[in-house]
Design a protein around this nucleic acid. Structure first.
Lengths: 154, 154
DNA sequence: CCTCATAGTGAGCTTGCCTCACTACTATTC
DNA sequence: GAATAGTAGTGAGGCAAGCTCACTATGAGG
């Protein structure tokens, strides 16, 4: 992987002059995204949990009970997809489904004790991973990066 | 989508104090990645071409002929997956497959005239999109971002 | 009461990858 | 110069993570 990356850089020399600097930024950005994705996949490995499940778990960590549709909103995925995610977490005993007492159409999703335990451990692992990844940067660079990303987001 | 983003920001206030700054950077990074992905998906829309196809096309734009396995390496995907990508591009008439004269096991993949035309147009669209996306930043910020991403990559 | 809207889910599709096993071929070794 | 070992591509089939469409059960407003 790393070798390919270097080879790619080498080849880029041939045509660097015809590329805009913003185009180069895209490429760099995705390259870093890949690194970050691999890094956090490793961080999650000990729990053998899918990224989509970990994301849902993270959302549920700071809501004692959410409707399935609310969870969808937080995850930015379709309600039908959330059903599957919730199925998976329930199979693993990490969450409970219960009917909403105020609306018998709706389902409330909440963490089990085990879900809370695993969620906490995963959050710690993710924090540590982020620290390992972005810790390479100086304090100033991290501040700059945060500011710049803030600008790009919207 | 944009609304969800804002709502998420709002909720984040509740617990910002318990998060490390590097964790915040991860979140920001992925948020921007999402924007960038959506933006480039839109940029590609006029050609109705899948991202995986566009990536392969981009690689082929600066090699007159590649073995399928070499294309795999450039794309960082398994050879079997490359077969499918190449199938797709061939169906659309954007590339030609021909047996390697030096090794009858191997296949050489190269752009057709149409493939070259479409590849060029897509590159222009992607450049324009990158410019639109990163153009929000000052010259200095772009330089800083490039430098910082460079540091993070590897 | 009747109509319309909403919450969740079954069925089935799509994208973009993967592994495993196989065929056709090349390279090596005895 | 045959046997063996390795390599290039691909068929078969799988998986993750999303999607839409259509349906049921329920709620809400006239």
């Amino acid at each position: 992987m790393a070798e390919d990356q270097h080879e790619k850089d080498g080849r880029a020399d041939e045509w660097r002059d015809v590329r805009t600097d913003t185009d180069r930024l895209s490429e760099l950005f995705w390259s870093v995204a890949r690194q970050l994705r691999h890094s956090s996949r490793e961080a999650l490995a000990p729990w053998d949990i899918a990224p989509s499940h970990s994301r849902a778990l993270a959302v549920l960590m700071h809501h004692q009970a959410l409707r399935l549709s609310e969870l969808s909103d937080h995850l930015h995925i379709a309600p039908r997809s959330t059903t599957d995610v919730v199925d998976g977490l329930q199979e693993r005993g990490l969450i409970d489904r219960m009917p909403d007492p105020h609306d018998r159409r709706a389902m409330l999703v909440s963490l089990t004790d085990e879900g809370h335990r695993v969620g906490t451990a995963i959050r710690a692992a993710r924090d540590a991973d982020a620290e390992r990844f972005f810790g390479l940067l100086s304090e100033d660079d991290r501040a700059d990066l945060a500011r710049i990303l803030q600008t790009l987001r919207r």
